[in-house]
Design a protein around this nucleic acid. Structure first.
Length: 476
RNA sequence: GUCCCCAUCGUCUAGUGGCCUAGGACGCUGGCCUCUCACGCCGGAAACAGGGGUUCGACUCCCCUUGGGGACGCCA
């Protein structure tokens, strides 16, 4: 039997981060076992489902590279099939028509609540003759669930969980308008799709008992269940938007790399000894349901950041340059240097060690992309004292006559300048940094100079010596 | 209210009765490295929710308490 998992989101919003983790676990489990990972869109709630949400979910999964097998299935499109099974149960005497009005049900629950009793449906039409049906009420079809005993689920994550059947009522299968309920649709679809492992959030755990009864009534044994704990916010409560309950595209826009998001999500509630950095290959090899924890995890941006920083450092320079170039182009408007992309790519080595997300990376890269003259921030300008400018003028002469132009040669040349001027390296490096990058912080100044090239460096030095900045009074 | 689930450093977690003086990671912090900032390296503070059992021996097993979370729709 080939392992088949599925991810079944309802398209009422974006693919939020919790859903992404559920999808990841399903994907990983299927890939680990060489099985199938299917996608089903649970769009039976016509009022709340939107095409835009479907697109957002597909985009989110694609961005995370959680590719599904076959076509995505629309649950709504299968409503006839669902109804068919409900009628079959009716014919077999395993389900019955219930003629309660919404008002009657509401009154029943209110009375139960007032008396402190369970608010479950009391099964009043279970054995009643349909001839007693009130006029003008379209019936629903309810499952004739067992009233005695208990329903037991051997959950792959939660272990054995049992519930008294008295806690479970006769659920509605088919609504008065003949459309299937979620419970019916899910079970019939999972059966038809031959799903072997249902991996989902543990908010569905109680549904699993009802679904178990439905599988049994339909004459099938249920698939394996694995209910994974939900992700909580830093305060332990349900994940709020402010705390990360965002669509995955929001993470992309915040400058996170998909591999970092996946690695982070994987370690949230799952572990493999002390391993922290787990790439996709490794994850497929190691993933197993029995290593999934049972307690809810809290979302922590700081850890995501550190993982993201790691994957940025690992990432290909060209890819990173491509990722940040569009944003820089838009931001710089007409001031983008002609060979910005090339500089970005070559400068990425030093740049990517200093960013924990793509936004920071872009921010720190801007001096490479900017055409002359570059802006110099206030702090950097304070390094361009008259003394420093004098020094820089001498350095410029040395640089101008340099025959070699690479990081090492530049470094020894600058160190030589410092030596003959009798100053510390930093006294040249910082003013140089200010003139060349417009900032007090940057990658190694020698690397920057190599990337910028001799001509650009001399140009930027000239820009600074001819601008009023060089005459700025020294900071006191 | 009823039912279900959970409980190790601030956070993610390792730990399946003796390997625990409780390990790793993030964060915090001291130092080294150093042209700035990072990276890297070395060090530090930081946890078994509480109470009962079981046992020669409990973080590990059982019970209770407390604290979290979830489910109780003709929503999904």
């Amino acid at each position: 039997m080939t392992v088949t998992t599925r991810f079944a989101p309802s398209p009422t919003g974006f693919l939020h981060i919790g859903g992404a983790r559920t999808a990841l676990f399903n994907w990983l489990f299927a890939r680990h076992h060489g099985g199938q990972f299917l996608l089903r869109i649970e769009d039976t709630d016509r009022a709340r489902s939107t095409d835009a949400a479907v697109a957002a979910i597909l985009d989110g999964l694609s961005w995370l590279e959680l590719n599904w097998d076959g076509e995505a299935i629309s649950q709504f499109a299968r409503r006839q099939r669902h109804a068919e099974e409900a009628h079959r149960l009716l014919d077999e005497g395993k389900a019955y028509r219930c003629y309660c009005s919404q008002e009657e049900l509401a009154a029943m629950r209110a009375a139960a609540k007032a008396e402190g009793r369970s608010m479950l449906y009391d099964g009043r039409w279970r054995d009643r003759n349909p001839s007693e049906a009130p006029a003008g009420i379209e019936p629903v079809i309810r499952l004739k669930a067992p009233r005695e005993g208990e329903t037991v689920i051997d959950d792959l994550v939660q272990g054995i969980v049992r519930v008294d059947n008295a806690q479970l009522d006769d659920m509605v299968l088919l609504r008065a308008d003949c459309t299937p309920t979620y419970m019916l649709a899910v079970v019939v679809d999972d059966l038809d799709m031959k799903v072997t492992h249902i991996i989902r959030g543990d908010d569905h755990l109680t549904n699993a008992f009802r679904q178990y009864q439905l599988y049994t009534a339909l004459g099938f044994s249920p698939p394996a269940f694995a209910h994974i704990p939900l992700i909580h916010g830093p305060d332990g409560a349900k994940l709020s938007k402010r705390h990360g309950a965002l669509g995955v595209e929001a993470y992309r826009d915040m400058g996170y790399l998909p591999e970092a998001v996946c690695n982070y999500l994987l370690r949230l509630g799952w572990s493999h000894g002390d391993e922290e950095i787990i790439d996709r290959r490794q994850a497929i090899a190691w993933f197993d349901l029995n290593a999934v924890g049972r307690s809810p995890a809290r979302f922590d941006f700081a850890k995501l950041d550190s993982l993201n920083a790691h994957y940025i450092r690992q990432a290909d320079d060209g890819r990173l340059a491509d990722l940040i170039l569009p944003g820089l182009t838009a931001r710089l408007e007409g001031r983008l240097a002609a060979d910005a992309q090339n500089r970005l790519k070559r400068g990425m080595r030093g740049l990517k060690e200093r960013a924990k997300n793509l936004s920071e990376l872009a921010e720190n890269s801007i001096f490479y992309a900017h055409s002359r003259p570059i802006p110099v921030d206030d702090k950097a300008a304070r390094n361009l004292t008259p003394e420093a400018s004098t020094l820089l003028l001498k350095v410029r002469d040395h640089l101008a006559s340099a025959e070699e132009w690479n990081e090492q040669s530049i470094e020894s040349l600058i160190r030589h300048c410092a030596e003959i001027a009798g100053v510390k390296l930093g006294q040249i490096a910082q003013p140089l940094r200010a003139a060349l990058t417009g900032s007090t912080v940057s990658p190694s100044i020698f690397e920057v100079m190599e990337v910028l090239g001799k001509k650009e460096c001399l140009g930027r030095l000239d820009d600074v010596s001819t601008s009023p900045l060089s005459n700025a009074p020294a900071a006191v």
